[in-house]
Write a protein that binds this DNA or RNA. Sequence first.
DNA 1: ATCCCATGTGGGCAATGTCCACATGGGATA
DNA 2: TATCCCATGTGGACATTGCCCACATGGGAT
Lengths: 210, 210
Amino acid sequence: MQQTSYHHGDLRNSLVSIGADMLNEKGVASISLREIARTIGVGHNAPYRHFRNKHELLEAIAEEGFRKLTAKNTRLELEFAHDPETQLFESAMHIVLVAAEQPNLYQLMFGGFLQPIEANTALKQAADDAIQSLVKIIKSGQQQRVFVQGDEMKLSLSAMSMIQGIAMMVSSGKLRPLANTASWSECPIVLKGMVLQLFDVFLNGLKLDK
Amino acid sequence: MQQTSYHHGDLRNSLVSIGADMLNEKGVASISLREIARTIGVGHNAPYRHFRNKHELLEAIAEEGFRKLTAKNTRLELEFAHDPETQLFESAMHIVLVAAEQPNLYQLMFGGFLQPIEANTALKQAADDAIQSLVKIIKSGQQQRVFVQGDEMKLSLSAMSMIQGIAMMVSSGKLRPLANTASWSECPIVLKGMVLQLFDVFLNGLKLDK
DNA sequence: ATCCCATGTGGGCAATGTCCACATGGGATA
DNA sequence: TATCCCATGTGGACATTGCCCACATGGGAT
């Protein structure tokens, strides 16, 4: 991790990567540009050659997170091409797992820390892409007549609300594994059960046949 | 706002109140203990007589928020005693309005900034009370045979996920009024329409008759 | 081989969170 | 009513942080 030559070579990526690690460990409140630089083994001013300020580094970390989400959703769409219900479930499950295993990253992405007014367009774009990759699943489900017809935005909004809802409650600790177990990441099965319950309640309003 | 005598008399409450104001204006990232103290007109160390650290003041602000939520829900329960559906809707609408008008407070309450591990018991209690006041509405709806029977926690989880989901998206700016209008608080009617749409999709799975 | 500018360095500044010792004075007590 | 104590307030100090400055380095285009 220590650079030997004067120039690091790939500092920007290192900053985002180490920054993401440090974010998950210490939370957005305790993250420090200088410490990240120190960890990488670079001067406390080097980061400013790649980001105008701390906020921009955080944006880049969130952006990276959205990229991965989009990629995952796209993959799911191919993997379960003719099963929109499974697509939706797996997509939800993935987000909930991120919320459980990387709560601070999830919060940075979907929480209000990065105010959208200040958000750079790259971040906005990445976030929109991720959202659209979910909307696409809903649309496909409608076309295949698995989900009820009607305003697709309305259905998407509902589905996303539900998904973001649990994910947020999981990541923020509002919801906890029984008996105050240490962390969610230790009991993914319970998580899956919860999401299944949600889908049971939710899909009965979303499914075509009943 | 300036205290004249050596002793302020009600500093703790002032800190929470001014702190909440400042939170809404500047966001949790830019809030500063010293500035709050300065605004109240008190030394930069006075707050430490009432809170062990900055984190504890933030917890107190969140706690206050939860108290108000609980109170509101309890009031709604009386006002619409025989209409659980309206109770649920109004309760959701209220949370969404808080999310729109005081996004930073909402984020502090339901976001992951205050890690539950560190959260003091008073805060945990206040949060649990608020959640229970919602669960109570669901239960009452089941007893009155307006909502489907079955595991009440399952239904509550679903309802809360949906509500927290939109609220979070509204407060975090993931969802915006059309045409990039400045803020949600200027178009509460659109907000109400959205929540109505959600309930339309959601209640069809939750309602007993269909 | 040369030179330039993207990238890195260190020093400096104001602000912040938190620790310390000390000041004040309202309310219980004698 | 006079006294004293401790909850509450004060200022000083220190490490840390974000960010600005001028300056150093060296790889790639010329």
